[in-house]
């Protein structure tokens, strides 16, 4: 098992390498660079622009820029953000907590609701409650996130039940330890529901469809004919087969943990990575974009790996060759 994991991780290195070349080239080939905002400033002279180009290394060919960057990365230095003047990872770490808090709670929210509802709908196909759940879930998927977020904030402003965006209250530093946790949770509800409802419908329909497929299989008919209790038929046999694609889905969900919530973050003033990275992209803050891309790629790789391992655990038919 460990050998299998090790092999997958070693294989990930060339993948990351390839991603870094592609990403670096595409960003560099895109028109303009970080200095464009300086170029449009009426009070900055051409000499200064040229000295900035040298300072940021834009006067060198892209290939040279890439290898200079790569050399630094291999030594553990991911470079400075052009606009913040601090090492990129100190920025990313600062925002990682908020991002993970939001994406993990949203993940728990949507999976915690979608899976049971999907199972329930499959078992009560075409009943009133099945239709009702589907209807609600589709409302969730069809309202754009930013609009849902604004509606939520409007509700929060009118009722005062929830904060109008943000991650902590004004008096956060005076709160007790549990008070602080409560404060975080109180603030996370809005963005969590916004994000969670968007993913709900797809997952629920997937679960429902998979389970219905399995319930129509001969082995289910056979098990029922044999007189096996209905609960065992469904939960021990059908569900276990139905959950397979959902687990793969989960691996993908892991990779989306870091960057999947830009609009929601913006509307809710959530100080997460999404906004940081979008800003960096617009400004062409090269090293910051590269670092976040690499981190997201790493998560995708880890997500896929853990999905595969989960599959092996869920489905005894799957055996990885560990050699």
């Amino acid at each position: 098992m460990l050998r299998y994991i090790a092999r997958r991780l070693i294989l990930a290195i060339p993948v990351l390498f390839g991603i870094s070349i592609l990403a670096f080239m595409i960003i560099s080939l895109a028109p303009g660079d970080f200095i464009d905002n300086f170029r449009m400033n009426p009070s900055i002279s051409r000499e200064k622009i040229e000295s900035l180009e040298r300072e940021f290394g834009f006067d060198k060919p892209v290939i040279v820029q890439y290898f200079l960057w790569l050399g630094q990365v291999l030594r553990g230095n991911f470079g400075y953000s052009f606009s913040y003047h601090v090492p990129v990872f100190s920025l990313i770490w600062g925002r990682l907590g908020a991002t993970l808090l939001l994406s993990i709670t949203a993940l728990i929210f949507s999976w915690g609701i979608a899976i049971p509802l999907g199972i329930y709908s499959a078992l009560h196909q075409y009943s009133f409650s099945d239709q009702a759940f589907s209807f609600i879930a589709f409302i969730g998927i069809s309202i754009p996130n930013f609009f849902f977020a604004l509606l939520w904030l409007f509700m929060a402003a009118r009722t005062g039940w929830f904060p109008i965006g943000g991650i902590i209250s004004l008096d956060f530093h005076e709160l007790s330890f549990f008070g602080k946790i409560g404060d975080y949770l109180w603030h996370v509800v809005g963005p969590m529901v916004t994000l969670g409802t968007a993913g709900l419908a797809g997952l629920m329909r997937q679960m429902r469809g998979q389970l219905l497929d399995q319930l129509r299989q001969d082995y289910v008919l056979f098990a029922r004919a044999k007189g096996m209790p209905e609960k065992v038929v469904i939960y021990k046999h059908a569900l276990r087969n139905a959950i397979n694609p959902i687990v793969t889905f989960f691996g993908f969900a892991l990779s989306g943990l870091l960057g999947g919530a830009v609009l929601t973050e913006t509307v809710f003033n959530w100080p997460g990575m999404g906004r940081l990275v979008i800003d960096a992209l617009q400004q062409q803050d090269l090293f910051l974009v590269m670092a976040s891309l690499l981190l997201s790629s790493l998560l995708l790789i880890v997500g896929n790996l853990s999905a595969d391992l989960l599959l092996a655990w869920v489905d005894p038919r799957i055996r990885y060759r560990f050699g």
Partner: peptide
């Protein structure tokens, strides 16, 4: 002076209306 980071004009307006 408390400078609050606000993501957009829409939210700034909501916050102003709520007295924040």
């Amino acid at each position: 002076i408390n400078y609050e980071v606000v993501g957009s004009q829409d939210v700034l307006l909501l916050k102003f209306e709520a007295g924040e």
